[in-house]
Design a protein around this nucleic acid. Structure first.
Lengths: 239, 239
DNA sequence: CGCAAGTTTGATACCATTCAACTCCGGTGG
DNA sequence: CCACCGGAGTTGAATGGTATCAAACTTGCG
């Protein structure tokens, strides 16, 4: 299922914290730090909730979701990861989530033992975790306090390059040269619903509503064109 | 508002990762690593969302909540911290949450500059962040997928020593010698509601319902006696 | 074509919210 | 001492947003 190769340019623990090696999405890559590379196909399960934690993973390309299940089958997708994000928590015996790929995926993987002994890895780990913690805080607001429309709008905005998490919103500026954009969701309605704490039907209804209002165009169910990014941004609840 | 003193036994960066210094709740203390000590009174705001991040905080005693506000006033309490937890994220210019004390509080505080240069601090940071990330995942399940009763039951169970997060549940065992316990909430109904993604009235109604069913006894509004811990545990949705 | 999986749409039900009134409790001052 | 007050909590009735149940539709593919 997963093809694993050893990183040829592996030189462990000898890079400075402000290293000049490639970064992904502004965060430091684990690549040069003794990491193996691995590849996965869409819908591969990288590990299951409850599995023994043996490695730390950094997403190099593609998308991975982490989810938890309740005994009666209810599912919550707790994170949707992008390149540069890490998963497979260290400092714990068992994984608290299942990690499943949404697309073709490439990862860097390092043994947890290495993490425990590498100051450099821990530094990068702390940096990544801090970033992801912020995203989780934002997601808690979404799950705890936002309406269905606000959730879906926030989700779509999250997928707009450089607009994720509503961090870099320029406000309502209809004069922007490019107020539209194409999105590839890589998620089914069910996966979106489980991420947003909604049902599949509610997600579908909100999408149809956005389409009716001319804010989005649905080219294929997982291929969405945003006609008016600013209008959508106004619906996220953060304005 | 906050009384700050310098840590007398401050010896910076010379402790091994597996140091023998005191730990809180199983996690390493920042105390010996050049940290200042500070004290706060109940309802002190340690920092506001949007403030410049200058320090990293570790909670020594008491309880702190982190919350985010939407522009229209909706509030989500994203974390309720206990001794050993850290807050005041590093690797970012601004705080993403407001930090407010719920009780008398004592903290260890270190400058972010120190964190950037101390491998030891980064190690502990990564460890704490990993633990808190798990708690956030669990909370996402609560916010996204649980009913009001399940949320309140989970919240109360979270406050039971050694039962937090449903991690160490022994299952339905009515023969346990001690199936009851006293809790001090340190939170108003409003704060609980904002933590659980509910309204104040819903929290109150569920509490009354639990009382009517004989599962809890409400001694004072923030002083709850659990009559049957196992019954309550059964209501959290994790069984 | 015809099936299967995913999605959309409709009708209805229900849980949590909203709005409102009431209770409880501690503190203050006559 | 007790009347009064304000804030927090509780309870009730009505509303509404989302879930649920059910059916139709779309798409991809053998």
């Amino acid at each position: 299922m997963a093809y694993i190769e050893h990183n040829s340019n592996s030189h462990f623990g000898n890079m400075p914290a402000s290293g000049i090696e490639a970064t992904i999405a502004g965060r430091a890559s684990f690549g040069p730090l003794g990491a193996r590379n691995a590849s996965y196909k869409p819908h591969d399960v990288i590990y299951y909730e409850g599995d023994e934690a043996k490695r730390l993973y950094q997403l190099k390309t593609g998308t991975v979701m982490l989810f938890k299940l309740l005994p009666d089958g209810r599912r919550q997708v707790v994170e949707v990861l992008r390149p540069g994000d890490i998963f497979g928590l260290a400092y714990a015996e068992e994984h608290d989530c299942t990690a499943e790929t949404l697309t073709d995926v490439e990862t860097h993987e390092v043994d947890l033992k290495q993490v425990e002994t590498s100051a450099e890895l821990q530094c990068r780990l702390a940096s990544c975790l801090t970033h992801q913690m912020r995203v989780l805080h934002e997601h808690a607001v979404l799950l705890g306090r936002k309406s269905a429309l606000e959730r879906v709008a926030s989700f779509l905005m999250y997928l707009v390059p450089n607009r994720g998490g509503g961090v870099a919103c320029m406000g309502p500026d209809p004069s922007r040269d490019n107020d539209s954009c194409d999105l590839q969701l890589h998620m089914t309605r069910q996966e979106i619903a489980d991420f947003l704490g909604l049902t599949i039907e509610t997600v579908s209804r909100v999408m149809s509503d956005l389409k009716r209002r001319g804010v989005i165009r649905i080219d294929r169910s997982d291929k969405i064109h945003l006609n008016r990014i600013c209008s959508l941004c106004q619906m996220t609840g953060v304005h």
